[in-house]
Amino acid sequence: MQTWSELSETQPTIARVLQNSVRRGRLAHAYLFEGGRGTGRRAAALLLARAFLCEKTVDAEPCLVCRECRRAESGNHPDVHRIQPDGQTIKVDQIRALKKEFSMRGMESAKKVYIIEETETMSAAAANSLLKFLEEPEGEALAVLITASAGQILPTILSRAQVMSFSPLPPDRVTKALVERGFREKEARTAASLTSDLEEAERMFDEEWISQGREKVVQLMNDLISRPQDAYITVHETIMPFFTDRQQIQTALDLMMIWYRDVLRMQVGQSDAVVYIDQEDTLTKQAFQLSQQKLGKNLQAVMDAKRRAGANVPPQLLVEQLLLRLQEGS
Rank of each mutant, 00 (worst) to 15 (best):
G213P: 08
R307Q: 09
E208Q: 12
I239C: 07
R261W: 13
T238D: 13
M303I: 13
V275Q: 01
R203H: 13
T251C: 01
L264S: 14
A305N: 10
A309C: 04
R265M: 06
R203P: 00
V274S: 12
E208P: 04
L264N: 14
I233P: 00
K297F: 12
R189K: 07
L264A: 15
R246F: 06
T190R: 00
V263C: 11
R184C: 09
D206E: 15
K285F: 08
N222S: 14
R307E: 06
T234W: 08
V313Q: 00
F183T: 00
D223H: 11
T238R: 14
E280Y: 07
A305K: 07
L283I: 03
Q250R: 08
D245K: 00
R184P: 09
F242D: 03
L224A: 06
A273C: 06
H236W: 07
L299H: 08
Q292C: 01
Q289V: 07
F288N: 07
M240D: 06
Y276G: 07
M256A: 10
L264Q: 10
R214G: 12
Q279Y: 02
A192K: 10
A311I: 00
L290W: 06
P314C: 00
K186H: 08
I239G: 02
P315D: 01
N222R: 12
Y260A: 06
G182R: 00
V313L: 12
Q270E: 11
W259G: 13
I277P: 05
Q247W: 00
L220V: 04
V274M: 03
G213K: 09
D272Q: 03
A188C: 10
S271G: 15
D197R: 04
L295S: 05
Q267V: 11
D223P: 00
Q247N: 11
D262H: 03
G310I: 06
R184E: 14
A287T: 08
M266P: 04
M257G: 03
S211T: 07
T284I: 05
T195V: 13
E187C: 11
L295T: 02
R246P: 02
D245W: 00
I277L: 07
G182H: 06
Q212I: 04
L194S: 11
F288L: 00
K186R: 13
T244C: 10
Q289M: 06
M303V: 14
Q286L: 02
Y260Q: 14
Q248G: 03
I225K: 00
D254C: 03
A305R: 09
T244W: 03
G269D: 02
D254G: 05
R189V: 06
Q300G: 14
A301L: 11
L283V: 07
R214I: 06
W209A: 09
T251Q: 14
R227V: 11
Q229N: 14
S226V: 10
S196Q: 15
F205N: 13
M204Y: 15
F243M: 05
E200T: 14
A301T: 03
T195E: 15
Q267K: 15
K297M: 11
Q250V: 01
D254T: 01
Q219S: 11
L255I: 10
V235N: 09
A191P: 13
I225P: 04
A191F: 14
A191Q: 12
E200D: 02
G269F: 08
S271V: 12
K297D: 12
K294Q: 13
M204F: 04
K297R: 12
W209N: 05
V217S: 11
